[in-house]
Lab assay of single mutants.
Amino acid sequence: KELVSALYDYQEKSPREVTMKKGDILTLLNSTNKDWWKVEVNGRQGFVPAAYVKKL
């Protein structure tokens, strides 16, 4: 599985998104959309802005 690192804090703005803190390591589930990537963090799945994470 592919991992990404959070470059910035992000506070979810809808139920489809997830909150992350800078430095968090997230499991990348889907990166086909260039703007929003689906990740899993702390057992929750949702979307984060692609520009806020980088692949490890």
Rank of each mutant, 00 (worst) to 15 (best):
P15F: 10
Q45W: 08
K38F: 15
T27A: 10
D35Y: 15
Y52D: 05
R44N: 07
N30K: 07
V41N: 11
E12A: 15
K21R: 13
K1N: 12
Q45E: 13
D9S: 08
V41S: 11
K22F: 07
A6S: 05
Q45H: 08
S5W: 15
N42S: 09
Y8F: 13
S14R: 08
Y8N: 09
T27L: 15
V53R: 00
A50I: 03
S14Y: 07
Y52N: 08
A51D: 14
L29R: 03
D35C: 14
L29A: 02
P15W: 11
A6H: 01
P49T: 01
S5N: 08
V53F: 04
I25D: 02
L3T: 09
R44W: 04
N42G: 12
V48G: 01
K54Q: 14
L56T: 09
N33I: 06
N33T: 06
R44Q: 09
I25F: 06
F47T: 03
S5E: 15
D9G: 05
L3N: 06
E40H: 05
Q45N: 07
Q45A: 12
S31K: 09
D24S: 06
K21P: 00
E17Q: 12
V18L: 14
V48E: 01
V4P: 02
I25V: 12
R44L: 08
R16F: 14
Q45D: 07
D9M: 03
G43R: 04
D9Q: 03
Y10G: 00
R44E: 06
G23R: 03
N33H: 12
N33Q: 09
N33V: 05
K54R: 12
V48H: 00
T27Q: 11
A51G: 13
K22I: 07
L28W: 00
K21N: 09
T27Y: 13
V18D: 00
A50S: 13
V53E: 02
P15A: 13
L26D: 00
N30I: 08
L56M: 11
P49M: 03
R44P: 00
V53A: 03
W36Y: 08
D9T: 05
A51M: 11
T19C: 05
K1L: 14
L56F: 10
F47N: 04
W36A: 02
E2W: 13
D9R: 03
E2A: 11
K22L: 06
T32V: 11
K22W: 04
N30S: 13
S5D: 04
G43V: 02
K1T: 12
V4Q: 02
S5P: 03
D24L: 04
L3S: 08
S31V: 08
M20S: 01
K22D: 02
K38S: 08
M20G: 00
K22N: 04
V41P: 00
D35L: 13
V41G: 08
Y8D: 07
R44M: 08
L7V: 09
P49E: 02
E17M: 06
L3M: 12
I25G: 02
L26P: 01
Y52L: 15
